[in-house]
C-alpha cells in the first residue's frame, strides 16, 4: 500500500529533550490509522509535526502523493475561545478557508456545504446559535462539521472523543467511517483500544520511540503494549547528547 505520509527519522524536541525520538513510519494512503501510546509518548507532538505546528523538528516528513495544503487537523485541546461572539454557521464556514482564503467572498456553494456539514453532524437548527451556548459534545460536532467542509485528503484527529458521551462518539465515528469509504487518509490519536480495534485497521504504537506499526491486530499485541508502558516518562536533565546512529 502506498504512503500518504512518510516520516523519516523524525525527532521533535522541546528544550532539547526529545518528545518524539528517531521515528520512521509510513501512514498508509486512503486508510484509517490510529496512533496509540501512553501519556507523554509524543502522539500529539507527532501530529503537530505533520501539520507543521512545532518548530524543533529533525528528519523529514514527506507527502508522496498528497497535496500538503489539504490537511485538516483537530487539536486535542482546541484553543477556541468559546466565549467569542460567533455563530455555529460562521465557525463551520471557516472550513471553506482554502476556497475563500483570507479575503475572498464566500460563495453560495460554500454556504450550502456548511449547511450540509452542520446537518451531517446532527446540529441542524443550531446554525444561528452563538458558540458559547453549545455543550462540549455539540461543540465537538461543530468542529467535525468544519472539518467536513474542509474536504481534506489527510485528516488528523488528536483524541477527538475525550470527554464525549457514547452517542456523540458513535455519531462522530460514523463520520470517520465515511471518510474511510471516501478513501481519505485519517490519522487519529486514541486511548480506547477497543475503539481502535473496531474502527482502525492500521495502528502506530508510540512511546517516544516507535514500538510497532502496521495492521492493528499485529501492532497492539500484549507484548508490544507492555513495552510501550515500560517507556521511561522521565525528563532527564543529565541526559547525554544523542548522536546519530546511536539510537535503536
Amino acid at each position: 500500500m502506498s504512503a500518504a505520509l512518510r516520516l523519516v527519522d523524525v525527532t521533535v524536541t522541546y528544550d532539547r529533550h526529545p518528545a518524539v525520538h528517531h521515528v520512521s513510519v509510513e501512514i498508509p494512503d486512503g486508510a484509517c490509522t490510529a496512533v496509540v501510546g501512553p501519556n507523554g509518548a509524543g502522539k500529539s507532538t507527532l501530529l503537530k509535526a505533520m501539520v507543521g505546528l512545532v518548530r524543533e523538528v529533525r528528519g523529514r516528513i514527506e507527502f508522496p502523493h498528497r497535496d500538503r495544503s489539504k490537511i485538516a487537523y483537530l487539536p486535542q485541546q482546541s484553543d477556541v475561545d468559546r466565549s467569542f461572539p460567533i455563530s455555529v454557521l460562521d465557525m463551520v464556514m471557516l472550513g471553506g478557508w482554502h476556497a475563500m482564503g483570507a479575503f475572498g467572498a464566500a460563495r453560495a456553494t460554500d454556504l450550502d456545504g456548511a449547511l450540509h456539514a452542520i446537518e451531517a453532524v446532527g446540529l441542524r437548527g443550531f446554525e444561528r446559535r452563538p458558540l458559547s451556548t453549545l455543550s462540549s459534545g455539540q461543540f465537538q460536532r461543530a468542529l467535525f462539521a468544519r472539518m467536513l467542509l474542509q474536504d481534506a485528503e489527510i485528516i488528523l484527529l488528536d483524541e477527538p472523543f475525550n470527554a464525549i458521551d457514547a452517542r456523540t462518539t458513535a455519531d462522530l465515528l460514523a463520520l470517520v467511517r465515511r471518510w474511510r469509504e471516501d478513501k481519505r487518509t485519517v490519522v487519529c490519536v486514541l486511548h480506547d483500544l477497543e475503539q481502535v480495534r473496531a474502527n482502525f485497521p492500521h495502528s502506530v504504537l508510540l512511546a517516544r520511540e516507535l514500538i510497532a506499526a502496521g495492521p492493528t491486530e499485529q501492532t497492539l499485541t500484549a507484548a508490544n503494549l507492555l513495552r510501550a508502558r515500560a517507556m521511561a516518562e522521565s525528563w532527564d536533565e543529565t541526559a547525554d547528547v544523542c548522536h546519530p546512529g546511536e539510537a535503536a
Partner: peptide
C-alpha cells in the same frame, strides 16, 4: 482584515493549521 482577524481572535490554532 476582518476574517483573518476574527479567526486570530477566537481560534489562532486553526489559522496556523491552514498556514
Amino acid at each position: 482584515i476582518y476574517r483573518p482577524l476574527v479567526v486570530e481572535c477566537f481560534n489562532p490554532g486553526f489559522l496556523a493549521a491552514v498556514g
